[in-house]
């Protein structure tokens, strides 16, 4: 499949992300899909740093940096201002990490999408507070080491299913995407751009630094997350129409886990248990999608 974007780049070289940063790849493709008429609202996250320090900026679109928990609210205000100025052309996109989305920013996000504000909320998910040194978030997967779930205290709770939480708000569009599937990511961003109301895109963005993987493995591991059903690619329209976008290879989750230092401590028994969890989640998703057929 050819990438349906122009050659335009909205990210300058010289961003200050770590080598292999999935979030940098995610931003590049998202902006290709959105184009120049875009305002980015950027609550505190890795990208607060990646975008570069004053007086430079690595993005070719305007960026409003904002407080950690304000992604949904600041975007609502930007949209309102554009509306009163008669600007219906510009897309407002909130670009937040998993901490700013699943945890501290969840209230403002829920409020904004309940009001069905016309904007796109992108959560690039690297599954912990990476910018502050790998602390657990409610997006951190079961089994993971972080600096606040060290040793035998590895995370025993499952990852919050953020897409389903958003779907429960019955917003026009919610989808997952992944940096290893840029065509799918770009299509979903463009689809979201064309729709009115609140759109949510949950982008899997690998983090070599926090996941303890070599930087050149970033895209491969992202791809495996989809192939193993750990992070299925799907979209939900109006809170009920499910479409699964990728038929997985059904690789075993242990292949994905074995490659990452953050899961090194897990035993075969733990991995079997995780495999069961992934299978169960996948069955639930299949049922939801099948109901529509």
């Amino acid at each position: 499949m050819e990438l349906d974007t122009k050659d335009d780049e909205y990210m300058y070289s010289g961003h200050v992300g770590c080598p292999g940063c999935g979030a940098a790849i995610a931003m590049r493709f998202t902006l290709k899909a959105l184009g120049a008429k875009t305002i980015v609202v950027l609550p505190a996250c890795c990208w607060s740093i990646i975008a570069g320090p004053y007086p430079q900026s690595t993005l070719k679109v305007p960026v409003i940096h904002s407080a950690f928990e304000t992604g949904g609210a600041v975007a609502s205000g930007v949209r309102a201002a554009l509306d009163v100025k008669g600007d219906t052309e510009t897309t407002v996109v909130t670009w937040a990490g998993d901490g700013g989305t699943f945890d501290i920013g969840f209230q403002a996000l829920s409020g904004a999408v309940e009001r069905n504000e016309d904007f796109i909320y992108v959560c690039y998910d690297n599954e912990a507070y990476m910018n502050t040194g790998v602390q657990r978030s409610s997006s951190t997967p079961y089994g993971a080491w972080t600096t606040t779930t060290p040793g035998q205290d590895w995370k025993k709770m499952r990852k919050k299913n953020i897409v389903e939480a958003l779907v429960a708000h019955r917003i026009p569009y919610a989808a997952t995407a992944n940096i290893a599937f840029p065509e799918d990511l770009v299509r979903k961003v463009q689809k979201a751009k064309a729709l009115k109301g609140s759109k949510f895109i949950h982008v899997y963005a690998s983090c070599p630094t926090g996941w303890r993987i070599p930087s050149e493995m970033s895209v491969k591991i992202a791809r495996m997350a989809v192939q193993t059903n750990i992070f299925p690619l799907y979209e939900v329209e109006n809170g009920n129409k499910y479409t699964i976008n990728y038929k997985p290879k059904e690789y075993l989750v242990r292949e994905y886990f074995k490659l990452q230092g953050r899961f090194r401590h897990l035993t075969d028994r733990d991995l079997d248990q995780i495999q069961e969890m992934v299978n169960e989640d996948w069955e639930v998703l299949l049922r939801k999608a099948a109901e529509r057929v």
Binding site: I39, V41, I64, S66, A67, E69, T70, G72, A73, V74, A75, S76, G77, V78, R79, A80, A81, L82, D83, V84, K85, Q107, A108, S110, G111, E114, R115
Partner: peptide, 26 residues
């Protein structure tokens, strides 16, 4: 009044929304 009224879910979001709006020059 010809204004947009945002009925937000907290005071924190009330001011955050204005930070977004005022940044756009209204």
């Amino acid at each position: 009044m010809d204004a947009r009224f945002l009925r937000v879910e907290s005071e924190h979001s009330a001011l955050a929304a204005l930070i977004g709006a005022q940044s756009c020059g209204v």
